[in-house]
Amino acid sequence: MKKVQFGPSWTPYLLLAPQLIIVALFFLWPAGEALRSSFYLEDPFFGNATFVGFDNYVDSTSAADYGRSAQFTAVFTVSICVISLGIALALAVSADAVLRGKSPYKTALMWVYAIAPPVAGLIGVMMFDQHIGPLSDFARWLGWEMQVGVSYFDTAVAMITVAAWKQIPVNFIFFLSGLQGIPNSLREAAAIDCRSPARRFWTVVFPLLAPTSFFLLVINITYAFFETFGVIDVMLKGEPGNNPVTLVYKVFLDGFRGQDLGGSSAQSVILMIAVFALTIVQFRLIERRVHYS
């Protein structure tokens, strides 16, 4: 916290009021509703509810595909972080290091940032189409009979690819700005101390990028959990079938698509607790890093 602050007065409350009012109305109230309805089975039209205790929790978590979804969510999240952050870091390092053509490269890599998730999904569906998709053809050429939509594994690969692809520009932009934030004096000093570029990267630059990386980790996990919704939705073509879905998408499937309000509320409460735990851990790490630097 700041050492210097304004003293107590009514001003901070006034400043906070708009955000707190919006949060209370449009977040706390609906989230409270979700918590309440997770203990009820509810008639969707009239809201006549029967209290069922923890039945909704038991029923939804014991369904055969819940464990599978949880597992997929973990794999999906980790893969997106690794692939997307890895490629973006490589690109940012190169974009920072090239002497010529810096700005056209930057522009070409940045503008795709704006692509809407459903649009990314649409392109993905066509690229990975099991009959005419060029990427499926490519996989077949490599000897892999890829059938997105039929094989659980193949669909998972396609989803991860598309979701990670869409996130590359965001990570690229943040990494690049992180690299550009490294003062020139430091670069020159490092160049003298450390001959090998690779060693220079891992011993000097990478630690300096750590706050950025931690921050991006949070952003990417949030993205993989919540913002891939549009990608998955389009890639499933309306039928989940024997295909992987994330836990967030399952909440949507059961609640929004299937009108099982109680079951889907229970799942979102579980999710909320999980994300909360995850966030606290991450937050601590980030805070520490920020102070450290």
Binding site: S9, V23, F27, L28, A34, F276
Partner: peptide
């Protein structure tokens, strides 16, 4: 950040909690 007042960190956590549950699931 700039004011010292009771409930400051409570307010922060309340706001921060909104990251937990995106609109799609509520």
């Amino acid at each position: 950040v700039y004011f010292r007042f009771p409930f400051a960190s409570l307010a922060f956590w309340v706001i921060f909690a909104t990251l937990l549950l995106p609109l799609e699931v509520r």
